[in-house]
């Protein structure tokens, strides 16, 4: 069974004043199998963040359906949605989304505390994750005291500590320098090797290269997809770049 199924999802934004309509997604369909590592690419404004928000159940589609672990998101009641999100999804954001009021440790514990877990159990879960993400030394520091790379690893730890079915990442390397980016991406590859399913939205070709499959979104629908299979990183890089060029020139020709 697929972990994520996206069926004919469309999203139209209607502005409050004037009622002008913007079509963010027209018709998107794809699915993600357990253990996959999928990257979604597209130009700015292609609708990839909208898509991620809909999958994350932070936003609602105007048409179509999203199923996570076989459960349709539209069927889940509003008040259960937060708990569902907490138990099934993990998030890594471009700007980390760590709370300044908590130490790194408490930031990571946040979803577990919300689920009502005992402190001992939380601590037991944290130990292996913290050493795998090499953040053990900074656990008692506060977000403003650590580097961007460390913050993002802490955010990843927070996403992983709930053992989510699906890890969602929104431009996770967007705010990082290249060294920190590499570290984070190798962590993603590593946890994927351990069986974690990942769905990542990204601009960066380099980040997308680490994924096993890349989906390209254009004008609100899936335009193309690439499987890495046995390709080397370099070859994958070239193929992605080529596809992006086609999307860019195609976009020009559409305007004529």
């Amino acid at each position: 069974m697929s972990i994520l199924t996206v069926n004919n999802v469309g999203k139209i934004y209607t502005s409050r004043i004037g009622g002008s309509r913007v079509q963010a997604l027209t018709d998107v369909s794809f699915s993600v199998e357990p253990g996959e590592y999928v990257a979604i690419m597209g130009e700015s404004g292609s609708g990839k963040t909208t898509l991620l928000n809909i999958i994350a159940s932070l936003d609602k589609p105007t048409s179509g359906e999203v199923k996570i672990a076989g459960q349709s998101l539209s069927r889940i009641k509003e008040k259960d949605l937060a708990a569902f999100r907490r138990n099934n999804l993990g998030f890594v954001f471009q700007d980390f989304n760590l709370l300044d009021t908590f130490s790194i440790r408490d930031n990571i514990f946040l979803p577990l505390v919300l689920s009502g877990m005992k402190h001992d159990e939380m601590q037991a879960r944290l130990t292996p994750i913290a050493s795998r993400l090499s953040i053990r030394e900074i656990l008692d520091k506060f977000p403003y005291e650590v580097s961007g790379g460390q913050k993002q690893r802490a955010a990843a730890a927070r996403a992983l500590i709930t053992n989510p079915q699906l890890l969602l990442a929104d431009e996770p390397t967007g705010a990082l320098d290249s060294k920190s980016s590499d570290e984070l991406l190798s962590i993603f590859t590593e946890i994927n090797d351990f069986g974690q399913t990942i769905l990542m939205v990204t601009h960066s070709v380099k980040a997308a290269c680490t994924a096993k499959r890349v989906l390209f979104i254009k004008d609100g629908h899936v335009f193309h997809q690439l499987y890495k299979a046995n390709m080397s990183d370099d070859e994958m890089f070239r193929r992605i770049s080529d596809t992006l060029t086609i999307i860019a020139t195609g976009g020009e020709s559409n305007e004529q």
Partner: peptide, 15 residues
Amino acid sequence: ERFIIMQNVGMSRQE
């Protein structure tokens, strides 16, 4: 900001 982050991490609006 805290409000938004907490929602993202899995706290309901009501909570």
